[in-house]
Structures are given as structure tokens and as C-alpha cells.
Amino acid sequence: MPDDTQDSGIIGELTADHRAVQQLFDRIRAAAPGSAERKDLADRVTIDLVRHGAVEKEHLYPAVRRYLPRGTAWADRGLANHAGIERVLKELDQRRPDEGEFDGLLVELVTLVTAHSVEEEQRLFPLLQAVCPAAELRELGEKVRADRPTAPTRPRPPAPQAESAGPAVLPGTGLLDRVRDILTRRGRRAGGP
């Protein structure tokens, strides 16, 4: 029987994000190399991953720091993983799908995201679920659901010395990203909002 704390809480929300991104990766693999469809799907993945990273930085890592022994090390590693993913997303965003580097960056992205997701789901989430109160996990899940639609959608990798400092996104950045996405139709052709 599924644990409804996981399903309705932050762990369930973030796991669902992981599944959605993996489905987009499957669609990217099925799209013709060099195609506009592949670029549109990469844009959709970028939007989803940047939003996911923003809500993890805002809600997951503070809870990890608070509740887990060695929580700071776990959070710092997660933030470093997100910084690496955002660097690849930024490079990918600047490439056309018919450029040779585009597919290489996609492979790098899939590798980084898959490793990060597996580490969270198999190691971090079970540890957090064991020590964090169920009510707090549910509350954090509600915050993730509320914040995801307004989170930024464009990668902003931190400077190397700022990786462990946490998010440095100014309020309103998500709104500016969404306006820019609407004007450019970024992520819309691939099933975006």
C-alpha cells in the first residue's frame, strides 16, 4: 500500500517531476536528430528542470539541512549537482539542434539528471522521510505545488564560488522568464503551458 505522506508530500512531488523529465528524455530520443521537435523538447526539459531545481533549492535543501545528520553536506552536493545541470542547460539553450554539440550536451544532461534523480530517490528521500515529520513533508509538498508555476524557467548557473550559498534568484525572475517564454513561444510546441 503506497505511503500517502510520500504521495502527497514533497518527496512525491519531486519524484513525479523526475518521472516527467524522464518521459521528456524518452521523447527527445524518439525525435529526429537535428529536428525542431528535438529543440522544442529540450526547451521543455529546460523549463521543467529549472523549475524543479528552484523548488528543491527553496524547500528541499533547507529541510535536508535541518533534519539530516550531515544535512549540510547533502544539501551542498545537491546544489552543486543543480549548478552542473544548469550549466549544461545554459549551453544547450545556446545551441541549434543541427549543431554537433547539441546532441553531446543532451547526452551529458541525461547522464547528470539521471544520476541526480537516482541519488535523491534511493538515498536522500528515504533518509529524509525517516526523520522529517510527516506533517512537514506534506506542508513542503503543498509549497512545492504552489511555487512551481511561478518559479524561474531559464537556467542561471551560479558562479563557482557561490554554489553552496543557495539560490540567488531575485523575486519576479520567474514572471520575467514566463513573459519571455510566451513572447518566444519557448516550450509551447512541445506540450508546455
Score class of each variant (00 low, 15 high):
residue 36 A to N: 10
residue 7 D to K: 11
residue 31 A to I: 11
residue 136 E to H: 09
residue 136 E to K: 10
residue 142 E to P: 00
residue 99 E to F: 07
residue 192 G to S: 11
residue 13 E to P: 08
residue 186 R to E: 10
residue 19 R to H: 14
residue 4 D to M: 14
residue 155 P to T: 11
residue 132 C to I: 02
residue 13 E to W: 08
residue 82 H to E: 08
residue 132 C to P: 00
residue 123 R to Y: 09
residue 165 A to E: 13
residue 38 R to I: 13
residue 66 R to C: 10
residue 26 D to Y: 10
residue 146 A to P: 02
residue 105 L to E: 05
residue 101 E to K: 12
residue 53 G to M: 13
residue 107 V to L: 13
residue 23 Q to E: 14
residue 49 L to M: 15
residue 134 A to S: 09
residue 69 P to G: 15
residue 152 P to A: 06
residue 88 V to Q: 03
residue 140 L to R: 01
residue 60 L to G: 04
residue 106 L to P: 03
residue 83 A to D: 07
residue 49 L to I: 13
residue 113 V to F: 08
residue 84 G to Y: 01
residue 82 H to C: 07
residue 128 L to V: 07
residue 78 G to K: 01
residue 92 L to E: 02
residue 105 L to Y: 03
residue 156 R to P: 04
residue 107 V to K: 13
residue 183 L to C: 06
residue 145 R to C: 08
residue 4 D to K: 11
residue 11 I to H: 02
residue 132 C to D: 00
residue 5 T to P: 02
residue 134 A to G: 04
residue 108 E to Q: 12
residue 20 A to G: 05
residue 113 V to A: 03
residue 179 V to G: 00
residue 121 E to T: 04
residue 180 R to A: 12
residue 180 R to L: 10
residue 166 G to P: 01
residue 68 L to Y: 03
residue 25 F to E: 03
residue 23 Q to L: 13
residue 114 T to C: 03
residue 67 Y to L: 07
residue 29 R to F: 14
residue 158 P to V: 11
residue 26 D to E: 15
residue 154 R to M: 11
residue 148 R to Y: 07
residue 121 E to Q: 10
residue 114 T to R: 00
residue 16 A to L: 14
residue 26 D to F: 13
residue 153 T to W: 02
residue 155 P to M: 08
residue 186 R to D: 07
residue 44 R to D: 09
residue 184 T to P: 00
residue 182 I to G: 09
residue 168 A to M: 12
residue 192 G to W: 08
residue 169 V to W: 10
residue 122 Q to M: 13
residue 102 F to K: 05
residue 114 T to W: 00
residue 95 R to G: 06
residue 58 E to L: 15
residue 75 A to V: 02
residue 114 T to V: 06
residue 93 D to P: 01
residue 39 K to H: 15
residue 105 L to W: 01
residue 127 L to F: 10
residue 2 P to A: 14
residue 106 L to F: 05
residue 5 T to N: 09
residue 62 P to R: 11
residue 59 H to V: 13
residue 87 R to K: 12
residue 147 D to K: 10
residue 179 V to T: 00
residue 86 E to M: 05
residue 170 L to W: 06
residue 159 A to V: 13
residue 173 T to W: 02
residue 174 G to H: 00
residue 17 D to V: 06
residue 175 L to K: 05
residue 79 L to S: 07
residue 135 A to E: 14
residue 61 Y to K: 07
residue 69 P to C: 10
residue 60 L to C: 10
residue 21 V to C: 01
residue 43 D to W: 11
residue 174 G to Q: 02
residue 132 C to A: 09
residue 76 D to M: 05
residue 51 R to D: 12
residue 152 P to Y: 00
residue 169 V to P: 04
residue 178 R to W: 01
residue 18 H to V: 02
residue 129 Q to R: 08
residue 48 D to K: 13
residue 121 E to M: 08
residue 190 A to L: 06
residue 98 D to I: 00
residue 162 A to H: 14
residue 167 P to W: 07
residue 85 I to Y: 00
residue 26 D to A: 15
residue 105 L to T: 03
residue 119 E to W: 02
residue 152 P to Q: 02
residue 109 L to N: 01
residue 189 R to T: 08
residue 25 F to T: 02
residue 55 V to W: 11
residue 97 P to L: 05
residue 11 I to G: 06
residue 51 R to A: 15
residue 160 P to G: 05
residue 57 K to W: 14
residue 92 L to N: 04
residue 117 S to N: 08
residue 172 G to W: 01
residue 75 A to H: 02
residue 183 L to M: 09
residue 115 A to C: 02
residue 107 V to F: 09
